[in-house]
Nucleic acid binder design. Structure first.
Lengths: 201, 201
DNA sequence: TGCAAAACTTCAACGGATGAAAACTGTAGA
DNA sequence: TCTACAGTTTTCATCCGTTGAAGTTTTGCA
């Protein structure tokens, strides 16, 4: 099953990712051309597009994995678990994953984060991916509580939770807080979404 | 103050908007070229870019106005008003405005909405604009409650409310609901954000 | 070993975006 | 009214991302 062909493709893909991220870091996103990326990865520029749909996409090569984790968590609802219990578990496991995964690749992740926040084109792409993920998460939440939640309510719940966390994290980043502060912000935002805005007085 | 030069610029701007939206409607966004827009508006393609930063931007010519309305509402907090009272007022006035404004330009607005939801490039741009608006709204909310809310809490509140409404509306649109249904979805989502996700059981 | 499919390259073209310089047009002041 | 200047627009050249088509190389398999 895992023939030479498959392995080669994986190697090419990784070479493109490595080359792209290194160049984006060194010279900025706009400033690096596809020709440069392709040269460093030793393929033609045309080949780039059989691995990624756009120059932006290469920066989000792993986002699918993280979404899948969240969806799996939603699918793993235990019988007695309430909507908010389950959502808390999704947030927690995502944060855990972020912390654990960052141990070896912290440099990389932080760098990529900064890149995405700096480059408008990447920001737009990130928001679109996040949005599409939320739609999938809403579906998964509805599947976990088919009787208790309507599709619209599921969407409202997912959007409210993630929307709050996202904006809180972004403001935290804008204020140049430490990683710890930002994680605290994320948790506080989740709390606010869970308790409702009325709890703010 | 309002010299010929100023009037001419406004007319050119409007001509570009009209030409672009008409063409987007007739042939789709990707399919219409800047050359066509410019020709119909009777300017050179280069001139397009002194009015709009990109082909996408022309579809969002009025978004700034709507954000300003919301920010003004936030700034108009009355002494006894709570955080949630004020936020409810923002949602209501935005919905009102949407309904009222759509009376004369309903065709236009609906068409533009469909366009944005269909074209990925426009969706990405819309999400970026919405995100930036939320940051401004969060600042305004913090300004309205400087003692009761931290900047991060303000962001969490705005993100949670708008995030929930946004996703609920999108799911409603995906399910092809009527305008009335979608407004109901929006209100239900706002309610959920206000009461908190725990209220979902 | 030879063949079919998959992957890659080359080539050409399109369209969005940008910089620079030339041409044009209101505007304000002599 | 004329003129000089500032603001606008056009023209021209160029870059780069993206895509289709056609041909070449590589890999897996009979």
């Amino acid at each position: 099953m895992v023939g030479l062909r498959e392995r080669k493709k994986q190697r090419t893909r990784q070479a493109l990712i490595d080359a792209a991220l290194r160049l984006f870091d060194e010279k900025g996103f706009e400033e690096t051309t596809l020709a440069e990326i392709a040269t460093q990865a030793e393929v033609s520029t045309r080949t780039f597009f059989s691995y990624f749909a756009s120059k932006e996409d290469v920066a989000f090569y792993d986002s699918e994995d993280r979404v899948r984790l969240a969806i799996e968590t939603l699918a793993s609802r235990t019988p007695g678990e309430t909507v908010s219990d389950l959502l808390v578990r999704v947030i927690d496991s995502s944060i855990d994953r972020m912390i654990v995964r960052q141990a070896p690749t912290f440099e990389d992740a932080a760098l990529r984060m900064r890149l995405i926040l700096t480059e408008p084109a990447l920001q737009a792409r990130a928001l679109l991916l996040l949005f599409e993920s939320q739609l999938r998460l809403a579906k998964a939440l509805h599947a976990a509580f088919p009787d208790r939640l309507t599709p619209v309510e599921s969407a409202a719940a997912v959007g409210s939770l993630i929307g709050g966390v996202k904006l809180a994290v972004m403001v935290g980043l804008e204020e140049d807080r430490s990683l710890d502060d930002i994680l605290r912000s994320a948790r506080r935002a989740a709390e606010i979404a869970l308790d409702g805005l009325r709890s703010l007085g």
